[in-house]
Amino acid sequence: DETGKELVLVLYDYQEKSPREVTIKKGDILTLLNSTNKDWWKIEVNDRQGFVPAAYLKKLD
């Protein structure tokens, strides 16, 4: 059920640097789980959840 889920576009590649982070690729469109922290957003990638720098993402309307 995708209702109410926010999507984000990945602006730059990011390689995870800790187990709490996930790797993302430029151009991916992913589900945003939590954006309350202005610097690190929690997203879902391939059934994995983790954090990436918010500056690497853009919210889609």
Rank of each mutant, 00 (worst) to 15 (best):
A55L: 11
W41G: 00
K59P: 07
I43A: 01
K17T: 11
K58R: 13
K59Q: 06
D61S: 14
L57N: 00
I43P: 00
Y14C: 02
E21H: 05
D47P: 03
I24M: 08
L9Q: 07
K42W: 10
E21T: 06
K38V: 11
L11N: 02
K25W: 15
K59T: 06
D1L: 13
G27S: 04
K26R: 10
T31A: 11
Q49K: 10
D1G: 14
E2A: 14
E44H: 07
K42D: 02
S18M: 08
K38L: 09
K38F: 08
L60Q: 05
N46W: 09
Q15V: 14
D28R: 06
K59V: 09
K25I: 10
P19K: 09
L60T: 05
G4H: 15
G4K: 15
D1A: 12
K5L: 11
G27L: 02
T3I: 13
D61W: 10
R20A: 13
Q49E: 10
D13Y: 04
W40K: 02
I24P: 00
G50N: 02
L32Q: 00
L11C: 06
D61F: 13
S35D: 13
W41C: 01
T31D: 05
K38N: 11
L7A: 06
Y14F: 06
V8M: 03
D47C: 11
D47I: 06
T23Y: 03
S18E: 09
E2Y: 12
N37S: 10
K42E: 15
A55S: 12
L32F: 02
N34Q: 10
Y56D: 02
D28S: 13
I43Y: 01
V22F: 07
Q49V: 13
K5N: 09
T23E: 03
E44C: 11
F51W: 15
A55F: 10
D13A: 07
F51C: 10
K17H: 08
G50D: 02
L33T: 05
V45T: 13
I29M: 06
D47F: 11
K17E: 07
L33I: 14
D1T: 14
V8K: 01
P19A: 12
Y14G: 00
T3L: 13
K38A: 13
I43W: 00
D61Q: 11
G50F: 09
Y12A: 14
L9W: 07
A54R: 12
T36M: 10
V8R: 01
I24W: 01
T36K: 13
N37C: 09
P53D: 01
K5I: 13
S35H: 11
Q49N: 08
G4A: 15
V8C: 09
W41L: 02
R48T: 07
L33K: 05
I29H: 04
W40M: 06
A55H: 11
L7R: 14
K58G: 05
K17M: 11
F51L: 07
K26W: 03
S18L: 08
V10N: 00
E16W: 07
Y56K: 05
V52S: 02
E21S: 06
K42R: 10
P53F: 03
D61I: 11
T3Q: 13
W41N: 01
N37L: 08
E21K: 04
Y14S: 01
L33F: 04
K26Y: 05
P53Q: 02
F51N: 03
E44D: 06
G50C: 06
V22S: 03
L30I: 09
V52K: 00
L32H: 01
R20C: 13
D1F: 13
D13I: 02
D47W: 07
K25D: 03
K5Y: 13
K59L: 11
D28I: 05
K26T: 07
S18H: 11
V45I: 12
Q15D: 12
N34E: 14
S35I: 05
T31C: 10
E44S: 09
L9T: 05
E21M: 04
E16K: 12
L33V: 10
V22Q: 04
D1M: 12
K59H: 07
Y14V: 01
L9G: 02
T36F: 09
K5F: 12
S18P: 04
K59N: 05
S18A: 11
D39W: 15
V52T: 02
P53C: 04
K5A: 09
Q49T: 12
T36Q: 13
D61E: 12
E6A: 12
K5M: 10
R48E: 05
E2N: 15
L57C: 07
N37H: 12
T3N: 12
D13G: 06
V8T: 03
S35F: 07
E21Y: 04
W41F: 04
G50P: 02
E21L: 03
T23Q: 03
K25F: 15
Y14T: 01
I24R: 00
V8I: 05
A54E: 03
D61C: 13
D61V: 11
L7P: 04
I43Q: 00
V10L: 01
T3W: 12
D28K: 06
A55V: 12
E21V: 03
T31F: 11
T3C: 14
Q15M: 12
L11W: 03
I29T: 06
A54H: 04
I43C: 04
Q49G: 05
K17F: 06
V22D: 01
L30C: 14
A54Y: 03
R48M: 07
F51G: 01
N34P: 03
G50Y: 08
Q49I: 12
T3A: 13
G50K: 02
R20S: 11
T23N: 05
K5R: 14
K26C: 07
V10R: 00
A54W: 02
L9I: 11
L9M: 09
I43V: 15
Y14Q: 00
L33S: 03
G4S: 13
L30D: 00
A55E: 09
T31M: 12
V22C: 10
W41T: 01
L32P: 00
S18W: 07
R20V: 10
F51A: 02
T23F: 04
Q15G: 07
K17P: 04
V22N: 02
K42V: 11
D28E: 15
G27R: 02
Y14E: 00
A54M: 05
W41S: 02
T31S: 09
R48H: 06
K5H: 14
L60R: 04
V22H: 03
G50A: 06
R20L: 14
Y12T: 08
V8H: 01
S35R: 08
A55K: 14
D13P: 06
D47N: 13
Y12H: 14
Y56C: 10
D39P: 02
I29E: 03
V22K: 02
Y56N: 09
D1P: 13
